[in-house]
Design a protein around this nucleic acid. Structure first.
Lengths: 135, 135
DNA sequence: TATAAGATGTATTTTAAATACATCTTTAAA
DNA sequence: TTTAAAGATGTATTTAAAATACATCTTATA
Protein backbone atom coordinates (compact mmCIF):
# COMPACT_ATOMS: atom_id res chain seq x y z
CA UNK A 1 0.00 0.00 0.00
CA UNK A 2 1.55 3.22 -1.12
CA UNK A 3 0.67 6.61 -2.51
CA UNK A 4 1.77 7.26 -6.09
CA UNK A 5 4.94 9.27 -6.74
CA UNK A 6 2.56 11.75 -8.37
CA UNK A 7 0.96 12.46 -4.98
CA UNK A 8 4.34 12.35 -3.25
CA UNK A 9 5.77 14.91 -5.70
CA UNK A 10 2.67 17.08 -5.29
CA UNK A 11 3.28 17.25 -1.54
CA UNK A 12 6.94 18.13 -2.09
CA UNK A 13 6.01 20.91 -4.51
CA UNK A 14 3.55 22.38 -2.02
CA UNK A 15 6.12 22.21 0.77
CA UNK A 16 8.68 23.99 -1.41
CA UNK A 17 6.21 26.70 -2.42
CA UNK A 18 5.15 27.15 1.21
CA UNK A 19 8.76 27.69 2.14
CA UNK A 20 9.20 30.31 -0.58
CA UNK A 21 6.24 32.63 -0.07
CA UNK A 22 5.83 35.83 -2.10
CA UNK A 23 7.93 34.35 -4.86
CA UNK A 24 7.32 32.83 -8.25
CA UNK A 25 8.95 29.41 -8.32
CA UNK A 26 9.63 27.82 -11.72
CA UNK A 27 9.17 24.16 -12.55
CA UNK A 28 12.82 24.04 -13.56
CA UNK A 29 13.82 25.24 -10.09
CA UNK A 30 11.66 22.54 -8.49
CA UNK A 31 12.96 19.92 -10.87
CA UNK A 32 16.56 20.81 -10.10
CA UNK A 33 16.05 21.01 -6.35
CA UNK A 34 14.22 17.69 -6.03
CA UNK A 35 16.13 15.99 -8.85
CA UNK A 36 12.89 14.91 -10.45
CA UNK A 37 12.11 14.54 -14.17
CA UNK A 38 10.97 17.99 -15.27
CA UNK A 39 8.43 16.45 -17.62
CA UNK A 40 6.82 14.53 -14.82
CA UNK A 41 6.75 17.56 -12.56
CA UNK A 42 4.97 19.49 -15.31
CA UNK A 43 2.07 17.03 -15.01
CA UNK A 44 2.05 17.21 -11.24
CA UNK A 45 2.11 21.01 -11.27
CA UNK A 46 -0.61 21.15 -13.90
CA UNK A 47 -2.76 18.86 -11.77
CA UNK A 48 -2.12 20.95 -8.64
CA UNK A 49 -3.33 23.93 -10.64
CA UNK A 50 -6.48 22.14 -11.81
CA UNK A 51 -7.26 21.19 -8.21
CA UNK A 52 -6.86 24.79 -7.14
CA UNK A 53 -3.85 24.45 -4.86
CA UNK A 54 -1.50 26.61 -6.90
CA UNK A 55 -1.59 29.49 -9.34
CA UNK A 56 0.74 29.83 -12.28
CA UNK A 57 1.94 32.79 -14.27
CA UNK A 58 3.13 32.13 -17.80
CA UNK A 59 5.77 34.00 -19.69
CA UNK A 60 8.96 35.72 -18.67
CA UNK A 61 9.37 35.99 -14.89
CA UNK A 62 6.48 33.54 -14.55
CA UNK A 63 6.26 30.72 -12.10
CA UNK A 64 4.14 29.12 -9.44
CA UNK A 65 2.79 30.12 -6.05
CA UNK A 66 0.24 28.80 -3.54
CA UNK A 67 -3.40 29.79 -4.11
CA UNK A 68 -3.99 29.79 -0.36
CA UNK A 69 -1.50 30.26 2.41
CA UNK A 70 0.02 27.12 3.88
CA UNK A 71 -2.06 27.34 7.04
CA UNK A 72 -5.22 27.11 4.95
CA UNK A 73 -4.31 23.81 3.26
CA UNK A 74 -4.96 20.48 4.99
CA UNK A 75 -2.64 17.62 4.05
CA UNK A 76 -5.61 15.24 3.86
CA UNK A 77 -7.23 17.46 1.27
CA UNK A 78 -4.14 17.28 -0.95
CA UNK A 79 -3.95 13.49 -0.70
CA UNK A 80 -7.68 13.05 -1.41
CA UNK A 81 -7.45 15.29 -4.47
CA UNK A 82 -4.20 14.02 -5.93
CA UNK A 83 -4.52 10.28 -5.38
CA UNK A 84 -6.39 8.96 -8.40
CA UNK A 85 -7.02 5.34 -7.43
CA UNK A 86 -8.05 5.46 -3.83
CA UNK A 87 -9.65 2.03 -4.01
CA UNK A 88 -8.25 0.00 -1.13
CA UNK A 89 -9.57 -3.25 -2.59
CA UNK A 90 -11.13 -4.39 -5.85
CA UNK A 91 -14.75 -4.05 -4.78
CA UNK A 92 -14.28 -0.29 -4.15
CA UNK A 93 -13.40 0.20 -7.81
CA UNK A 94 -16.49 1.23 -9.79
CA UNK A 95 -15.09 -0.61 -12.81
CA UNK A 96 -14.81 -3.90 -10.92
CA UNK A 97 -18.32 -4.19 -9.58
CA UNK A 98 -19.70 -7.71 -9.45
CA UNK A 99 -16.32 -9.40 -9.88
CA UNK A 100 -16.09 -10.71 -6.33
CA UNK A 101 -18.86 -13.24 -5.59
CA UNK A 102 -19.17 -12.21 -1.95
CA UNK A 103 -19.49 -8.51 -2.71
CA UNK A 104 -22.36 -6.93 -0.80
CA UNK A 105 -22.40 -9.71 1.77
CA UNK A 106 -18.81 -9.40 2.95
CA UNK A 107 -18.31 -7.11 5.92
CA UNK A 108 -14.68 -6.38 5.08
CA UNK A 109 -15.79 -3.53 2.84
CA UNK A 110 -17.17 -1.33 5.57
CA UNK A 111 -14.20 -2.09 7.81
CA UNK A 112 -11.71 -1.08 5.11
CA UNK A 113 -13.76 2.02 4.46
CA UNK A 114 -13.52 2.99 8.10
CA UNK A 115 -9.77 2.30 8.10
CA UNK A 116 -9.28 4.53 5.06
CA UNK A 117 -11.26 7.28 6.78
CA UNK A 118 -9.06 6.98 9.86
CA UNK A 119 -6.00 7.32 7.63
CA UNK A 120 -7.37 10.49 6.03
CA UNK A 121 -8.68 11.85 9.31
CA UNK A 122 -5.16 11.84 10.68
CA UNK A 123 -3.97 13.77 7.61
CA UNK A 124 -6.89 16.17 7.83
CA UNK A 125 -5.72 17.12 11.29
CA UNK A 126 -2.51 18.64 9.98
CA UNK A 127 -1.95 21.78 7.91
CA UNK A 128 0.65 22.23 5.18
CA UNK A 129 2.26 24.90 7.33
CA UNK A 130 2.85 22.25 10.01
CA UNK A 131 4.88 19.85 7.87
CA UNK A 132 7.56 22.24 6.69
CA UNK A 133 11.17 21.54 7.47
CA UNK A 134 12.84 21.28 10.84
CA UNK A 135 15.85 23.54 11.49
CA UNK B 1 -3.54 3.86 -2.62
CA UNK B 2 -4.66 0.28 -2.65
CA UNK B 3 -3.80 -3.08 -1.22
CA UNK B 4 -2.48 -5.64 -3.71
CA UNK B 5 -4.82 -8.28 -5.11
CA UNK B 6 -2.52 -10.71 -3.31
CA UNK B 7 -3.62 -9.30 0.05
CA UNK B 8 -7.22 -9.01 -1.14
CA UNK B 9 -7.25 -12.66 -2.22
CA UNK B 10 -5.66 -13.70 1.08
CA UNK B 11 -8.50 -12.08 2.98
CA UNK B 12 -11.06 -13.81 0.76
CA UNK B 13 -9.41 -17.17 1.30
CA UNK B 14 -9.45 -16.70 5.07
CA UNK B 15 -13.11 -15.65 4.99
CA UNK B 16 -14.00 -18.75 2.96
CA UNK B 17 -12.07 -21.05 5.28
CA UNK B 18 -13.67 -19.41 8.31
CA UNK B 19 -17.08 -20.11 6.84
CA UNK B 20 -16.21 -23.76 6.24
CA UNK B 21 -14.81 -24.91 9.59
CA UNK B 22 -13.91 -28.52 10.23
CA UNK B 23 -13.40 -29.06 6.52
CA UNK B 24 -10.49 -29.33 4.17
CA UNK B 25 -10.97 -26.81 1.40
CA UNK B 26 -9.01 -27.30 -1.82
CA UNK B 27 -7.37 -24.55 -3.82
CA UNK B 28 -9.43 -25.65 -6.81
CA UNK B 29 -12.61 -25.12 -4.81
CA UNK B 30 -11.47 -21.63 -3.83
CA UNK B 31 -10.36 -20.87 -7.37
CA UNK B 32 -13.73 -21.93 -8.77
CA UNK B 33 -15.76 -20.12 -6.14
CA UNK B 34 -13.92 -16.82 -6.43
CA UNK B 35 -13.21 -17.17 -10.15
CA UNK B 36 -9.53 -16.42 -9.56
CA UNK B 37 -6.53 -17.81 -11.43
CA UNK B 38 -5.70 -21.07 -9.65
CA UNK B 39 -1.98 -20.45 -10.17
CA UNK B 40 -2.15 -17.13 -8.45
CA UNK B 41 -4.18 -18.54 -5.59
CA UNK B 42 -1.52 -21.19 -5.09
CA UNK B 43 0.96 -18.41 -4.29
CA UNK B 44 -1.44 -16.66 -1.97
CA UNK B 45 -2.25 -19.88 -0.14
CA UNK B 46 1.41 -20.78 0.12
CA UNK B 47 2.15 -17.39 1.61
CA UNK B 48 -0.74 -17.69 4.07
CA UNK B 49 0.81 -20.97 5.15
CA UNK B 50 4.27 -19.43 5.57
CA UNK B 51 2.77 -16.67 7.71
CA UNK B 52 1.05 -19.25 9.89
CA UNK B 53 -2.56 -18.41 9.14
CA UNK B 54 -3.48 -21.72 7.50
CA UNK B 55 -2.45 -25.36 7.55
CA UNK B 56 -2.43 -27.58 4.51
CA UNK B 57 -2.70 -31.31 4.03
CA UNK B 58 -1.22 -32.73 0.87
CA UNK B 59 -2.43 -35.74 -1.04
CA UNK B 60 -5.81 -37.27 -1.65
CA UNK B 61 -8.54 -35.72 0.49
CA UNK B 62 -6.10 -32.96 1.34
CA UNK B 63 -6.84 -29.29 1.52
CA UNK B 64 -6.61 -26.19 3.66
CA UNK B 65 -7.94 -25.07 7.00
CA UNK B 66 -7.35 -22.22 9.46
CA UNK B 67 -4.48 -22.63 11.93
CA UNK B 68 -6.41 -20.66 14.53
CA UNK B 69 -10.12 -20.15 14.81
CA UNK B 70 -11.54 -17.05 13.14
CA UNK B 71 -12.03 -15.27 16.45
CA UNK B 72 -8.29 -15.50 17.10
CA UNK B 73 -7.22 -13.72 13.89
CA UNK B 74 -7.16 -9.93 13.67
CA UNK B 75 -7.70 -8.44 10.22
CA UNK B 76 -4.88 -5.95 10.81
CA UNK B 77 -2.49 -8.81 11.42
CA UNK B 78 -3.34 -10.34 8.06
CA UNK B 79 -2.87 -7.06 6.20
CA UNK B 80 0.43 -6.33 7.95
CA UNK B 81 1.77 -9.78 7.09
CA UNK B 82 0.53 -10.07 3.54
CA UNK B 83 1.18 -6.57 2.21
CA UNK B 84 4.74 -6.59 0.95
CA UNK B 85 5.34 -2.94 0.10
CA UNK B 86 3.79 -1.03 2.94
CA UNK B 87 5.80 2.08 2.11
CA UNK B 88 3.32 4.95 1.92
CA UNK B 89 5.88 7.24 0.27
CA UNK B 90 9.34 6.90 -1.23
CA UNK B 91 11.29 7.86 1.87
CA UNK B 92 9.79 4.92 3.83
CA UNK B 93 11.37 2.49 1.37
CA UNK B 94 14.74 1.27 2.66
CA UNK B 95 15.97 1.04 -0.94
CA UNK B 96 15.20 4.70 -1.63
CA UNK B 97 17.04 6.33 1.24
CA UNK B 98 18.69 9.64 0.43
CA UNK B 99 16.78 10.17 -2.81
CA UNK B 100 14.60 13.00 -1.53
CA UNK B 101 16.68 16.07 -0.61
CA UNK B 102 14.40 17.07 2.26
CA UNK B 103 14.39 13.63 3.87
CA UNK B 104 15.01 13.81 7.60
CA UNK B 105 13.93 17.43 7.77
CA UNK B 106 10.45 17.05 6.34
CA UNK B 107 7.72 16.49 8.91
CA UNK B 108 5.43 14.72 6.48
CA UNK B 109 7.12 11.44 7.30
CA UNK B 110 5.98 11.20 10.87
CA UNK B 111 2.49 12.37 9.93
CA UNK B 112 2.15 9.67 7.26
CA UNK B 113 3.49 7.15 9.73
CA UNK B 114 0.79 8.07 12.21
CA UNK B 115 -1.87 7.92 9.49
CA UNK B 116 -0.73 4.43 8.52
CA UNK B 117 -0.91 3.36 12.14
CA UNK B 118 -4.46 4.70 12.42
CA UNK B 119 -5.39 2.70 9.34
CA UNK B 120 -3.98 -0.50 10.84
CA UNK B 121 -5.35 0.24 14.28
CA UNK B 122 -8.85 0.24 12.85
CA UNK B 123 -8.18 -3.15 11.24
CA UNK B 124 -6.62 -4.49 14.43
CA UNK B 125 -9.89 -3.80 16.22
CA UNK B 126 -11.77 -6.35 14.14
CA UNK B 127 -11.52 -10.16 14.13
CA UNK B 128 -11.82 -12.40 11.07
CA UNK B 129 -14.93 -13.89 12.66
CA UNK B 130 -16.51 -10.46 12.54
CA UNK B 131 -16.19 -9.88 8.80
CA UNK B 132 -17.94 -13.02 7.59
CA UNK B 133 -20.99 -12.73 5.39
CA UNK B 134 -24.30 -11.14 6.21
CA UNK B 135 -27.51 -13.23 5.89
C1' DT C 1 9.38 40.84 -31.10
C1' DA C 2 12.23 37.58 -29.00
C1' DT C 3 12.43 34.75 -25.19
C1' DA C 4 11.22 32.64 -21.06
C1' DA C 5 7.79 30.73 -18.84
C1' DG C 6 3.75 27.24 -18.39
C1' DA C 7 -0.03 24.09 -21.11
C1' DT C 8 -1.22 20.09 -23.29
C1' DG C 9 -1.45 15.92 -25.95
C1' DT C 10 0.85 11.74 -27.29
C1' DA C 11 4.25 8.17 -27.14
C1' DT C 12 7.47 5.34 -24.86
C1' DT C 13 9.65 3.06 -21.02
C1' DT C 14 9.73 0.96 -16.60
C1' DT C 15 8.19 -1.65 -12.87
C1' DA C 16 5.51 -4.28 -9.93
C1' DA C 17 1.96 -7.24 -9.90
C1' DA C 18 -0.55 -10.79 -11.81
C1' DT C 19 -0.75 -14.88 -14.35
C1' DA C 20 0.92 -19.06 -16.62
C1' DC C 21 3.73 -23.10 -17.01
C1' DA C 22 6.39 -26.98 -15.54
C1' DT C 23 7.76 -30.22 -12.39
C1' DC C 24 8.29 -32.06 -7.74
C1' DT C 25 6.50 -33.99 -3.28
C1' DT C 26 3.10 -35.93 -0.29
C1' DT C 27 -0.75 -38.81 1.03
C1' DA C 28 -4.53 -41.89 1.08
C1' DA C 29 -7.61 -44.85 -1.29
C1' DA C 30 -8.14 -48.61 -4.50
C1' DT D 1 1.91 -50.98 -3.99
C1' DT D 2 0.31 -48.27 -7.42
C1' DT D 3 -2.33 -44.45 -8.83
C1' DA D 4 -4.51 -40.23 -8.55
C1' DA D 5 -5.42 -36.21 -6.07
C1' DA D 6 -3.76 -32.86 -3.50
C1' DG D 7 -0.27 -29.01 -2.29
C1' DA D 8 4.91 -27.03 -3.03
C1' DT D 9 8.02 -24.52 -5.54
C1' DG D 10 10.75 -22.29 -9.05
C1' DT D 11 10.76 -19.84 -13.35
C1' DA D 12 8.89 -17.37 -17.20
C1' DT D 13 5.65 -14.44 -19.34
C1' DT D 14 2.03 -11.05 -19.58
C1' DT D 15 -0.42 -7.00 -18.12
C1' DA D 16 -1.49 -2.59 -16.52
C1' DA D 17 -0.48 1.41 -14.20
C1' DA D 18 2.73 4.63 -13.38
C1' DA D 19 6.54 7.23 -14.65
C1' DT D 20 9.08 9.47 -18.07
C1' DA D 21 10.12 11.54 -22.56
C1' DC D 22 9.05 14.19 -26.58
C1' DA D 23 6.87 17.62 -29.39
C1' DT D 24 4.39 21.56 -30.03
C1' DC D 25 1.31 25.25 -28.51
C1' DT D 26 0.10 29.42 -25.72
C1' DT D 27 1.05 33.35 -22.83
C1' DA D 28 3.35 37.29 -20.97
C1' DT D 29 6.81 40.73 -20.48
C1' DA D 30 11.19 42.91 -20.98
Amino acid sequence: MQLTLHTDYALRVLIYLAMHPNQRVTITELSTFFNISRNHLVKVVHNLGLKGFIQSVRGKNGGLYLSRSADQIRVGEVVRQMEANFHIVECFNPQKQGVCPIQGKCKLTSLLCRAKEQFLKELDGTLLSEVLLNK
